[in-house]
């Protein structure tokens, strides 16, 4: 770096009142006092998260509409309890985050040629855009409204086929296909 690369900026000149700091200090104190009053008087709602959830509140009061929420994926099952997916790779092709990894194999069933032997979704890479859901020709992959998923390792957050099918079992009652 040369001296000519250095851009020297001068501070803006303060007015006399600002030089005393106090007027601006009082303005700042007023701002924080306003916030304190808002919280203490209950004007600003603070949601106690694990006990209170936004989906339990009316939308007008800051609640969340779960019907349109895009959360964790699930792999749907058909009436016989088999995975619906036909391993067409449409979802992984559509995926902008490239987080879907499918390994197809010859299907053991008569109604389709292929089925996914492996179906992994990296939930940490996923941006929850819902493109996979849109692309799927057999409605096999869907986004549920579950949003509070946790894991202790990155490996844990790569959901495999079994896990995704389990999520279907968990959510199918609240969110039918």
């Amino acid at each position: 770096m040369k001296d000519s690369d250095v851009i020297v900026l001068d501070e803006p000149r303060l007015s006399v009142a600002d030089q005393f700091y106090l007027p601006q200090v009082l303005v700042g104190l007023g701002t924080t006092m306003k916030h304190m009053f808002k919280v203490l008087s209950g004007t600003d709602i603070v949601i106690q998260y694990p006990e209170e959830r936004r989906e339990d509140m009316p939308v007008e009061q800051g609640g969340m509409l779960l019907r349109t929420y895009r959360g964790v994926h699930r792999l749907n099952k058909d009436e016989e309890g088999r995975v619906k997916c036909v391993a067409c790779f449409m979802c992984s092709t559509a995926c902008p985050a490239r987080c879907i990894h499918i390994e197809a194999e010859e299907s053991p069933w008569q109604d389709r040629e292929k089925y996914p032997a492996k179906f992994d979704i990296d939930e940490l890479r996923c941006i929850y855009c819902g493109m996979c859901e849109e692309a799927c020709p057999v409605d096999a992959i869907e986004l549920t409204s579950m949003y509070d998923i946790v894991g202790l390792t990155r490996q844990e957050m790569i959901f495999d086929k079994e896990k995704l099918l389990r999520i279907f079992d968990q959510t199918v009652e609240d969110e039918p296909m």
Binding site: T32, H35, M36, L40, V46, Q48
Partner: peptide, 10 residues
Amino acid sequence: KIAAWTQDRL
């Protein structure tokens, strides 16, 4: 507590 209140927390 005061820190929280000024930052809209509890």
